[in-house]
Design a protein around this nucleic acid. Structure first.
Length: 305
DNA sequence: GGTCTCGGACTTTCAAGCGT
DNA sequence: CGCTTGAAAGTCCGAGACCG
């Protein structure tokens, strides 16, 4: 098959999934472009684009893990939301790494130098390059997923992300942001980085200027709060600091931001009726139940022994 | 044709080994 | 003690099977 969209992963969410104000909305993958891939304008792209490094979430949820499918950092993850199993979307448990495993003597890297230096073919960081003024101006800017209203790109990685050697440079387009509150207190250990690092994912999500009639907006668009008395979405980037609480929706006229139209070519039908999508979900859920059998019945991943 | 399964490529993590 | 190495552990792409 070779389709880039297995499971229709970037399909429309079911109407019941849409826009729950307190819900974590996924800033990822609606475009069909994997969230870890950084698109570039042709002027920025090298003539022979290096293969984009695949980026993985730190911890996939149990459902995605079993299905061997792409997960994301939000809980519930996009895939679980899509399949209506949000309540089952929990981080998988990582095995404890075994200790005391002896290793043979290391083979010398042919010769000498710290080839960490050799690897540092710095394809990325030209000073000031690709850093939007709003971000560049404030080093105290919290990690923010960036969104461009003008390109089919819906990434999620923080502006503080520093490309490693060989990794594609981060593209930071002009964008608008809207913070959302986490849906609930995270379980211990979830959402926090290692060693007390800040959480790698801040639940912000994108706001676009809305060229669509509001009647069509609801299924795709998320209300984006704005400060008291401010004009609706000025034509420029607005950064919401992480600590700023979104104004209460009831007290503000939301303006709506569309999800990418190419990912949502037409509004989904609304209403409680069971649609084909739900039918498929039922079939899928049955299979998921099978796959939720105890470890070992799912014969897979024997590699890691 | 759309969806699901799962083999295996690929990435991440982190303890052991090593150099200073 | 910090850096490097390399293997375990984990993610998820994508080909092929399956289903309506």
């Amino acid at each position: 098959m070779g389709d880039n969209n297995p499971e229709g992963e970037e399909q429309q969410p079911s109407p019941t999934d849409s826009v729950q104000p307190q819900m974590t909305v996924h800033p990822v993958s609606y475009s069909g472009m994997p969230m870890h891939m950084y698109p570039f304008s042709h002027s920025v792209m090298p003539s022979t684009p290096p293969r984009t490094k695949r980026r993985q979430v730190k911890n996939a949820c149990t459902n995605c893990q079993k299905a061997c499918k792409k997960c994301d950092d939000a809980r519930p993850c996009l895939r679980c939301v899509k399949y209506g199993i949000s309540e089952e979307c929990v981080d998988s448990q990582r095995k404890e790494r075994q200790k005391g495993v002896k290793r043979g003597p290391y083979k010398k890297r042919d010769g000498k130098t710290n080839n960490a230096n050799d690897q540092q073919v710095d394809v990325s960081v030209q000073p000031g390059m690709m850093v939007p003024p709003a971000v560049a101006a404030t080093s105290a800017t919290p990690p923010i997923p960036y969104m461009s209203p003008y390109t089919p790109f819906y990434g999620q990685y923080p502006a503080t992300h520093v490309p490693k050697a060989g990794e594609a440079p981060v593209y930071v387009p002009q964008l608008f942001y809207a913070p959302i509150a986490p849906p609930q207190a995270m379980p211990a250990g979830h959402g926090s980085g290692q060693d007390g690092e800040p959480a790698p994912y801040t639940p912000y999500y994108p706001v676009f200027t809305a060229p669509y009639h509001q009647a069509y907006a609801a299924p795709y668009m998320v209300p984006a709060p704005r400060p008291e008395g401010q004009m609706p979405m000025a034509p420029g980037p607005v950064a919401h600091p992480a600590h700023a609480h979104p104004p209460h929706p009831a007290h503000h006229h939301p303006h709506y931001a569309p999800y990418p139209p190419q990912a949502y070519p037409k509004p989904p039908s609304r209403g409680p009726e069971i649609n084909a999508h739900h039918m498929m979900d039922a079939r899928r859920d049955a299979r998921l139940d099978m796959s939720r059998m105890p470890e070992g019945m799912h014969g897979h991943h024997g590699k890691a022994g």
